[in-house]
Design a binder for these strands. Structure first.
Lengths: 237, 237
DNA sequence: CCTATACTCCATAACTCTATGGATAACAGA
DNA sequence: TCTGTTATCCATAGAGTTATGGAGTATAGG
């Protein structure tokens, strides 16, 4: 018995799905997509962040644009790429979740060097929200300043990982620190927490990162340090 | 400025995610995965259902097994493959959702030949549940009998698409029919509804299909027509 | 122990994808 | 208009992927 419905239609359908599959078959494209879920970036910025040559990065971005997973905006001589919608970021998250669930290797990497192996539980979003309200915690955004400026947890201060040790004295040793970064696949916050632990501080990571926080409808602020415009309308159309 | 955290770790991480990405880069593998989300099947059954040669199908299944997306069980000389967990099916659904959201072509195919183009709204799960309770609707499972036997909506009767026209007189013309199949990517139910409309019947599709119904925790029965064992423990470990 | 069945493994040829550098295109500023 | 910047396009070599048929493996049954 053959149960192939409308023969042609089905084949076409799966071919379309494979267009999206092809995007995530290459590690660098997943990396780029993950970066784009943080906010828009120029081709050059993406290339240097992912360690690709400009032409190669452009080619990868072209593939992703053809699959309609990213969109572009031109500003003078520069082209800014962004994820084509919230669904794209959800898909990247889903891919990461599946990988963690099915591939022991992923969990090992995430629990490996510089992560929360010390049995430190992560802080839930609900808990953080409450403790920020009460004010008995300091939230640090350990991502690069540009990403902080593009959107951050309301009330968080920008303290990029690479400046953490130098600016350690800005943090009150008696107050617990909660660090967050780009999401479950990002290693910035776990590394920050490990560093803080080495210095005898109390610190934990937030579960997930900014995209998940935003997606949960929790307060996000934009702009550089200090000025706290309640903005960020990126996904709110 | 370079912001590449733990250089090696990140590259490894994305390479692992790409292992899963590579699985869904090929249309036939998506098709196979979609089939496996309906229940386990032998290699031969999968090959014939997807129109692949046995060796090719086996190779594709091998790729999927290496990525830990499917698992096998041997029974005599036969090897049965199954999805490696509920997360796998959720991922396939997520891929389909993303494709529908981002690729106009997919929506076109789904709304194309034989689908609910007639402005027919789909029945929600909640509505169906209530109307089955009241009993003013007949639910037909238009998938192949084997899939019905492996698990179906409690109360549904098995009426494979290919027998629909021949067995049309089994359906009371005064009662609305709700057809369901494998999920949003499956075209069996929309075709059945189109056929029923041509015969002047009142009929609609259920939103999504059996996997989504099961995932929502709604009643599923197993076994062939008539006998209604409340079973199906496939995902309940 | 022999045979048939249901798969998996292997070698290979055809094909597709990726990285790279040079050429081209779009734009801003002088 | 000329120049520098930023990004895309193109040709190509190299790497990886798929389909296929034939060989090999595991199992059930005679």
């Amino acid at each position: 018995m053959e149960y192939r419905t409308t023969g042609q239609g089905r084949a076409d359908l799966y071919a379309q799905l494979a267009r999206i599959g092809k995007v995530v078959m290459h590690p660098k494209r997943i990396e780029l997509l993950d970066l784009l879920c943080q906010g828009e970036r120029s081709v050059e910025a993406l290339a240097s962040a992912s360690g690709l040559k400009l032409t190669t990065a452009s080619a990868h971005l072209g593939v992703m644009r053809q699959a309609r997973l990213v969109e572009t905006r031109r500003e003078g001589t520069r082209v800014y790429y962004r994820a084509a919608g919230e669904e794209v970021c959800r898909f990247v998250t889903a891919l990461g979740d599946l990988a963690r669930a099915r591939l022991a290797e992923v969990d090992q990497i995430l629990r490996g060097i510089g992560t929360d192996a010390h049995g430190t539980e992560r802080v839930t979003r609900a808990e953080l929200l409450e403790r920020v309200r009460v004010g008995d915690v300091v939230v640090i955004d350990v991502r690069p300043p540009e990403e902080y400026a593009a959107g951050h947890i309301a009330g968080a201060i920008s303290l990029p990982l690479e400046h953490l040790e130098a600016r350690l004295d800005e943090l009150d040793p008696t107050v617990e620190v909660v660090a967050y970064c780009r999401g479950p696949l990002c290693l910035l916050a776990p590394e920050a927490v490990a560093t803080l632990h080495e210095r005898g501080r109390t610190a934990r990571c937030l579960e997930d990162g900014l995209p998940e926080w935003r997606r949960a409808g929790l307060p996000v602020a934009a702009g550089a340090e200090g000025q706290m415009e309640p903005d960020d309308t990126r996904w709110s159309r």
